[in-house]
Design a protein around this nucleic acid. Structure first.
Lengths: 219, 219
DNA sequence: GGCGGAACTCATCATCTGTTGACTTCTCTG
DNA sequence: CAGAGAAGTCAACAGATGATGAGTTCCGCC
């Protein structure tokens, strides 16, 4: 970037020839939200430790100190980022509304759908951060278990002694598709169209939800 | 670890009273391997960016510079770490040996078994590193696809037009159990006994391997 | 017995990180 | 129109990190 040496003597009596770069910016851009979006994208791409305040600030076109000005510490920024812009209760309610026989497919469609939506970035940020921050991992796990899997299982009337196993199985299959598609971007999983995956994964979820468990303990 | 102040006067005639801290160490401990193990453990616990040379060196009871002495750069160390001490071809051959009808269960048993074995640490290190190093991710993906999933699918005679979808589904379920159990340590998945998981996950894998695909494209 | 090289440590470097505080500029309120 | 405070920038800090190179100690070979 060549330095601006244009003299421009006394063009406007109050304005200096070179525009100031410090101080409050004119206009009213919602800078806070801009920073949050940049943070989401960066956390999603690099994880918590991999992301840097400087990188996030650059992405938002802003001074690094401004990030601290708004959010204090990096951890605080992460916490603010993880506020996922999707109402899980609502979504789960919609899914559980239909017939139980096709619940698995609807569940698969919901999970894959939400991750393909704009909210997916925030979710990916949360996921990636969970991988190197156990505290975040705990938050996500508890939320997922009580708000999503738990409620769905309760809805289908799962017997208590099977609850843990079925929850574990459900989590494993959902986690696997999402991890493979959106975090590790494994081929051929990542490029598979949603419509191809939903019925198959849905069938698996359905079995984990209401299907018979293979004789536990028998060979 | 408290410092060892035991005087042990003149235990060996040639040893000075105060052990020297610099220079070559006596005896013949395989220090290189010690460092590798420490690196595996650290990479598995913290991922690539999260792990530090100093941390690895401390874990191995060694000067940080020695790590560079042996492995050059951090990336080289990672590459040396990822050499997984398990022969996949062998394992896959064992699994594919039995009857096709129970292949899924044997596959599930193998995957969960290997990860529960000592080799699991190395695998976890590779996995975690894959999350923040796309190059490693690519290596793992290609290896997994061609050496494991690909060979198993070829063994069952999967029609070519279904190959991608079935591979994607298999990967998603295997990845999910492993990620949940060994990387994110999600409960109740992590504490579920292997024997409880194998039959259920095995059934899913079996369907992804040889079962009918739910009418693709139909509603 | 001495000597070359391997094994190992120490001190140090440049760089990058999160964070801070002083400072400037704008907007809003009374 | 004055001034308080929000919005924003700048320069700098301390700490940690990967890496380097010189130096020290030991082993094995001739």
């Amino acid at each position: 970037m060549p330095p601006d040496h244009s003299a421009q003597p006394d063009a406007a009596h109050r304005l200096p020839s070179v525009p100031r770069r410090t101080g409050r910016r004119p206009g009213n851009p919602d800078t806070r939200e801009t920073i949050l979006q940049a943070a989401r994208a960066t956390f999603a791409a690099s994880g918590f430790t991999g992301a840097t305040i400087r990188g996030i600030a650059a992405r938002a076109g802003v001074d690094p100190a401004l990030v601290h000005h708004y959010f204090g510490t990096k951890e605080n920024l992460l916490l603010a980022t993880v506020q996922v812009p999707v109402n899980p209760r609502e979504v789960v309610d919609t899914v559980t509304a239909g017939p139980v026989q096709t619940l698995g497919t609807r569940l698969a469609g919901m999970v894959l759908g939400v991750w393909a939506s704009p909210a997916g970035t925030a979710l990916a940020a949360a996921m990636r951060s969970a991988i190197d921050d156990p505290a975040i991992a705990r938050t996500i796990r508890e939320f997922l278990l009580s708000q999503v899997i738990g409620r769905v299982l309760r809805h289908v009337g799962c017997p208590p002694q099977e609850l843990d196993l079925r929850a574990a199985l459900l989590a494993s299959q959902m986690l696997g598709v999402i991890m493979g598609r959106h975090i590790l971007k494994l081929e051929p999983l990542a490029s598979q169209p949603i419509e191809a995956l939903v019925p198959q994964v849905g069938a698996t979820l359905q079995r984990y939800l209401t299907g018979p468990l293979v004789t536990p303990g028998a060979e």
